[in-house]
């Protein structure tokens, strides 16, 4: 784990996604692919090998017509902190290709270090990590749209959402040039946050009480960042991964779906 190096107050960048607002339009997914040079293949319908750093899931309450209801759930990397930065993926990486930054709270992915063992993919309970089974191929001419801010990946390595870390670097560079050490809330926003036409995604420093994300979920840092705001929840809270992506929903069935159990799970556990 990377220890804080700066003399700045450590940040904990995180995201709050209001599922009542999300309409499942897919703008966040497309904005993410365009921002991060995410490759695409001729057939992307095998969702197991379709690289989507941001993926919108469709949840249903499972009730028959006409009581059926659906809810969309965008899933970036959760940037888990675990206990003191021991996020599930960071703990298992033998190459230190993925690391937890105590400066920003961001889980990095260093492509040149990754040798593709995919332990991190097995460890990630959110399916947020993707393996490059092939070298990316752009149709002739389309390499022109690649952004120089994000490295292009190759066959044999794992990639995932970086909370658009290059945008943080760009914002910090600008701040340093202007003699500042701190960023304003709107100076660093992820591509998906910026793109969401419904305003469902909010991004900022969970440690900063002035930031909207903090106010929206009131994270309890004494208890692994657990949300204290009503209607706020995290995915698979019980695993103790301490993720930095929070969700809001007024619908109880949606909040329950966020911590789904296999039928009977937990009951057996209680016997021990």
């Amino acid at each position: 784990m990377k220890q804080s190096q700066g003399h700045n107050r450590p940040k904990k960048y995180g995201m709050v996604i209001d599922l009542d607002k999300c309409t499942g339009c897919g703008s966040c997914m497309v904005a993410c692919m365009a921002e991060n040079n995410v490759p695409f293949k001729k057939d992307e319908t095998n969702k197991r090998d379709s690289i989507t750093w941001m993926k919108v899931y469709k949840l249903t309450n499972g009730k028959p017509f006409p009581e059926n209801d659906v809810c969309y759930l965008p899933r970036p990397c959760m940037h888990c902190e675990g206990h003191h930065g021991h996020s599930p993926c960071v703990s298992v990486c033998p190459a230190t290709a993925t690391d937890y930054s105590t400066d920003t709270g961001i889980v990095s992915q260093i492509y040149t270090r990754c040798f593709g063992c995919r332990y991190c993919m097995a460890a990630c309970p959110y399916h947020a990590r993707y393996f490059n089974w092939w070298d990316p191929v752009w149709p002739a001419g389309m390499e022109q749209m690649l952004s120089p801010d994000v490295s292009v990946r190759m066959r044999g390595i794992v990639e995932k959402c970086s909370f658009c870390f290059h945008r943080y670097q760009r914002a910090m560079d600008k701040a340093h040039l202007e003699g500042r050490h701190e960023l304003a809330e709107d100076e660093y926003q992820t591509s998906c946050t910026q793109a969401c036409p419904s305003g469902a995604i909010t991004f900022g420093d969970l440690n900063n009480p002035e930031h909207k994300v903090h106010q929206m979920v009131k994270p309890d840092n004494a208890h692994g960042g657990r949300p204290q705001a009503p209607n706020a929840f995290r995915l698979l809270e019980r695993l103790g991964t301490n993720p930095k992506v929070y969700y809001l929903s007024t619908r109880e069935w949606v909040r329950k779906a966020g911590d789904n159990s296999i039928k009977g799970e937990g009951k057996a556990h209680a016997k021990h």
Partner: peptide
């Protein structure tokens, strides 16, 4: 290509 990638299976 990006948009069709978002289509569910």
């Amino acid at each position: 290509p990006f948009v069709i990638k978002t289509v569910e299976d």
